[in-house]
Computed example of a mutant assay.
Amino acid sequence: MKEMKPIPYRHRPKGLTILYEDRDIIVIDKSAGLLTVKATYEREKTAHHILTNYIRKGSLKSKKQLFVVHRLDRDTSGVLVFAKSAEAKENLKLQWKGVKKKYVAVVHGILTEKSGTLISHLAENENYEVFSVKDSRKGELAKTRYKVLKEAKRFSLLEIELLTGKKNQIRVHFSEKGHPLVGDDKYGKKDEPKSRLALHSHYLTFRHPYSGKELTFEAEVPGFFKSFFDNT
């Protein structure tokens, strides 16, 4: 793979950590609270905008583009990859179903089954809320594999593998199972003290779009997740 020249310090991005970069891709550790791409209510405080400025090195004349491969919810932290060319994006999109995506989450309660796979068909209503439907024709198939890593009195730490990548999939599946994610203000407990969402994109494994080499990237689990289990 081709080596990169270091970017001048003044142009390095703020609010995220670059885990890896070459001529074809940028892999970052996104902080919770940062959008992946622009929304109607926010155009500039996004990972895409920050990284586009970064690769252009502050030049207004630069035509360099950054391409979105996948997204993380605003309140989800962790590994996120962008492509630097349309060709790299297409290569990654084509292999995306086979990409290994592992998350870590803290959920309310103690799960009876310590591992398993949650399967349902997900649909979305006019309020942008996602939910499971019994009629498979009215939703998209969603599969979430999990195992319990640690337990406290009222919380469980889970490792989750996304077998499909539908909107809000992890949050909906565990909410409907009766174990909503900590800090989920959309699908979680209504009387819960406000905190960040306890969902983190921990590992991502895919083949490099240019070399074909298998790459695995890891974003360290924030201390917030571990704080629930310090005394166990």
Rank of each mutant, 00 (worst) to 15 (best):
E176Y: 14
G188T: 11
P209Q: 08
Q169F: 07
D230W: 10
P6C: 02
N168L: 07
E218P: 04
R137C: 11
G223N: 01
G116S: 07
L72M: 15
I28Y: 02
A39N: 11
P209W: 09
G178E: 09
E44V: 05
D135C: 08
S195V: 07
E218G: 02
E159I: 01
S120M: 11
S85W: 00
L92D: 02
Y103A: 01
L215D: 03
G188W: 05
S31M: 03
P193Y: 10
S77V: 09
H200I: 01
K177I: 14
Y187G: 14
P209V: 08
Q65M: 13
K101E: 04
V37H: 06
L16T: 08
Y54K: 05
K45T: 13
P180A: 10
H208C: 05
K194H: 15
D135F: 04
H121P: 07
E159H: 05
V81E: 08
G223W: 01
K138W: 06
R71T: 02
P180S: 09
K63R: 06
V99C: 03
K64D: 10
K150D: 08
L181A: 10
K97Q: 11
R196Y: 11
V106E: 01
L111F: 02
P222L: 00
I110P: 00
S115H: 14
Q65E: 11
V172A: 13
K138A: 06
E161L: 02
I28S: 02
S136P: 09
E192S: 10
D230Y: 13
D135K: 02
F228L: 09
I28M: 01
K89C: 05
A39E: 08
V172M: 12
L199G: 05
A47L: 14
E21K: 12
I170N: 15
K186W: 12
R10C: 06
N168F: 06
T46R: 15
S201W: 04
Y103V: 00
G109Q: 04
D75F: 13
L34T: 00
S115Q: 12
S115E: 12
E21M: 08
G212M: 10
F225L: 01
Y210T: 12
D29C: 06
Y41E: 13
H179S: 10
K102Q: 03
V172N: 14
F224Y: 00
T112D: 09
F224H: 00
I25R: 02
L16N: 00
V81C: 12
L163V: 07
N91H: 12
R56W: 05
L19W: 03
A142L: 08
R23E: 10
T46D: 06
R12F: 06
F155H: 00
E113C: 07
I25H: 04
T164E: 10
T17E: 08
L158K: 00
A142F: 05
K150H: 08
N127F: 11
A142I: 01
I55Y: 03
K93A: 11
N127H: 15
Y9G: 09
D191F: 13
E3P: 15
L16S: 00
L92T: 03
A123T: 06
M4W: 07
G165R: 09
V172E: 12
S85Q: 04
R71Y: 11
K150Q: 14
K61S: 04
T112N: 08
P13K: 01
G183V: 13
G212K: 09
Y54H: 10
K14N: 02
Y41G: 12
K45A: 12
K150T: 05
G188M: 13
G212H: 07
